[in-house]
Computed example of a mutant assay.
Amino acid sequence: MATVDTPFGQVNYRVAGPQDSAAPPVVFVHGLLVNHELWTGVADRLAAEGIRSYAPDLPLGSHPIALSADADLSPRDIARLITDFMAALDLTDVTLVGNDTGGALCQFLVDTDHARIGRLVLTNCDAFDKFPPAPFGLIVKTGRSPMRLRAMMATMRPRMLRHSMLGFGGLVAKPLDPALTRRWITPSLSDAEVRRDTAKFLRKVKPAELLDVSTRLGAFGKPVRLVWGTADRFFKLADGQRLRQAFGDNAELVEVDDGRTFLPLDEPERVADEIRALSYSRG
């Protein structure tokens, strides 16, 4: 693992793939209460094909390093943090890839400053006013208080509850690794400053703001690929279809049969294939 300094504070990230890759770099954006490990299987498959990728740990509850105490962490601020991360590593012509809450952050990013972005890949994710989808609004409301966030995360200590349909279990089609999900909940359990960061973000989550962003997605004007699991209980195929229309003629929708929210975990090879295909297609 590596770290890089940004105006928001230090960011931890995983890098994979050859340093001298001729392919555009890939930057992964994860969602709430998970970390860079959501993307490890995808990143390793891309690395085997000679594509270098970067997976930062964002301040969404599973990050190992808290940001500066005075950092603003609205969704648009975190979009700026991702841009600052890319600038610190001098990444350009980036293939930006988002999942779940991370997909919403990608939409805020391209609405704010997409100069470093060459193309966009979104798997099942928040869109329009589904930020978050039911029933996860309760998690957002609870997590706005650091004290209540810790209490909520404590209920996920038992593997049975962590992997239940009310935990991470409803987001996958395949069995979860208990050690992985334990690592996801540990920072919010053990670090008050991580809880502070996460609560800051959750207090600024407003569905109306993402809905407003959706009205300008067509201005992005660069290649977009939506890789959408068709069996997702929370982000339906209709959401992906509507998002494709919002991005306009440069977007295409790829359906993944039986895929659910955490498509990068369930179908890393398929997701990697779609990223690779778009990365080598210069639009």
Rank of each mutant, 00 (worst) to 15 (best):
F220Q: 04
A272Y: 00
L176Y: 08
L171S: 05
P133F: 11
G218Y: 03
P207Q: 06
L105H: 06
A43T: 00
G167K: 09
D191Q: 14
N124V: 06
D57N: 12
A43N: 01
S145Y: 10
L263D: 05
Q10R: 15
T155R: 13
E269H: 07
G218D: 09
R196Q: 11
G240Q: 03
A22Y: 07
A43S: 10
V4P: 05
A66S: 10
A173C: 12
F262T: 01
T40I: 11
A87N: 11
T155C: 05
R52D: 03
L60M: 13
D273A: 15
V213M: 06
L202I: 07
L32Y: 12
P64N: 03
R242A: 14
P133V: 15
G283F: 12
F247D: 02
S279P: 00
F201H: 11
V254M: 05
E37D: 13
I82P: 00
F220E: 06
P264I: 06
D100A: 15
F234I: 05
D111R: 11
P207R: 11
R276Q: 08
E255Y: 07
T101C: 14
S53P: 03
P158V: 02
S279G: 09
D258I: 04
V15L: 12
S21V: 01
A69I: 08
R203L: 14
A272V: 01
L109I: 04
I117E: 01
Q19K: 14
A2D: 15
F262S: 01
R14Y: 09
L253R: 00
N250M: 12
E274W: 02
A88Y: 04
M147E: 14
D113T: 03
D57Y: 05
E37Q: 14
C106F: 09
D57R: 06
H63C: 14
P25K: 03
K206S: 14
F234P: 01
A277M: 13
L91A: 04
C125G: 07
R144V: 05
A208E: 15
D258A: 14
P132M: 08
F247Y: 14
W228I: 03
K236V: 12
F168Q: 10
M165T: 14
L202N: 07
P264L: 08
A179N: 11
K204R: 15
D72C: 13
A66P: 08
A192W: 13
Y13I: 08
L263Q: 01
M156E: 02
P24M: 07
D100F: 09
I51C: 05
D5T: 15
R216V: 12
R244C: 12
L161D: 06
A199Q: 05
V94G: 02
